[in-house]
């Protein structure tokens, strides 16, 4: 079972969380008219085989959003931090 370290609640089964994808994507600035910029943001993924930074929400715990480092080639889990703090603590 994949176990995820929540900064608030400690290590928990991944089933307590909801996965929300790549956390390195940056939304185009509000009002951007270039459709391609939105297309790339919404539809294209780096989807790397290796280190990945991703969002999870601890829906069945503290309900906080966090960023997790995980290697998609092995599922090895690294650091995690609260998404709103924006950086590893």
């Amino acid at each position: 079972m994949l176990r995820i370290p929540c900064p608030h609640c400690g290590e928990r089964d991944y089933t307590e969380f909801r996965y929300a994808g790549d956390a390195t994507k940056r939304r185009p600035v509000h009002g951007t008219e270039d459709v391609r910029a939105w297309y790339e943001h919404v539809f294209l993924f780096t989807n790397p085989k290796g280190p990945h930074r991703e969002y999870w929400q601890h829906v069945q715990g503290c309900r906080q959003w966090l960023v997790l480092e995980r290697d998609t080639a092995t599922n090895t889990v690294g650091r995690s931090w609260l998404a709103r703090t924006g950086a590893p603590s």
Partner: peptide
């Protein structure tokens, strides 16, 4: 969740 490991999760 996206992964390239061919090991499935128990749930």
């Amino acid at each position: 969740f996206n992964t390239y490991t061919q090991r499935g999760q128990f749930p």
